[in-house]
Amino acid sequence: MKRIFYTVLAILVLLIGIAFAVLNRQIVELNYYFGLKWSGPLSMALLAAFAFGVVAGYIASLRTVVRMQRQLVQARKEIRQIEQEVINLRALPIKDVI
């Protein structure tokens, strides 16, 4: 059910994006530093800005993701060690103390 919802949502966002691109075909001129200029459709400029933001956000979060993966590996090692200790404790013979 969740997959169907996300698929419908993705198709809806795609259709809205296509409609936006068709309705905003006018040419815009972007001026950069050092005299660089770019002329193109408004929708392409916004798509490029969005893509740049996605890449910048991914790079910014990469450090946190790597740190969390290291912590996960360490936690799994500790779990294996504790499970082995439990198995060893269960294998110990029980002595009757009188």
Results as ranks from 00 to 15, higher is better:
residue 15 L to K: 08
residue 27 I to W: 14
residue 45 A to L: 05
residue 53 G to N: 02
residue 25 R to F: 12
residue 16 I to C: 00
residue 27 I to V: 15
residue 35 G to H: 03
residue 49 A to T: 14
residue 39 S to L: 11
residue 34 F to P: 12
residue 22 V to R: 11
residue 35 G to I: 01
residue 51 A to G: 08
residue 23 L to I: 15
residue 52 F to I: 10
residue 17 G to A: 02
residue 20 F to D: 03
residue 51 A to N: 07
residue 46 L to H: 00
residue 40 G to R: 04
residue 53 G to Y: 04
residue 50 F to S: 08
residue 52 F to T: 13
residue 35 G to Q: 03
residue 54 V to F: 05
residue 23 L to Y: 14
residue 26 Q to M: 11
residue 25 R to K: 09
residue 39 S to M: 12
residue 41 P to W: 02
residue 42 L to D: 13
residue 28 V to T: 13
residue 40 G to S: 05
residue 18 I to H: 03
residue 16 I to N: 00
residue 28 V to K: 14
residue 39 S to T: 07
residue 54 V to P: 07
residue 48 A to I: 11
residue 52 F to P: 08
residue 21 A to E: 10
residue 54 V to M: 09
residue 46 L to D: 00
residue 21 A to F: 08
residue 53 G to K: 01
residue 30 L to I: 09
residue 37 K to Q: 08
residue 23 L to M: 12
residue 52 F to N: 13
residue 26 Q to P: 06
residue 35 G to W: 03
residue 39 S to C: 12
residue 22 V to L: 11
residue 22 V to T: 10
residue 20 F to I: 02
residue 46 L to T: 00
residue 47 L to P: 02
residue 17 G to M: 02
residue 52 F to W: 08
residue 45 A to G: 09
residue 49 A to Y: 08
residue 28 V to Y: 15
residue 24 N to V: 12
residue 31 N to C: 07
residue 29 E to S: 09
residue 29 E to F: 13
residue 52 F to K: 08
residue 24 N to I: 15
residue 49 A to R: 05
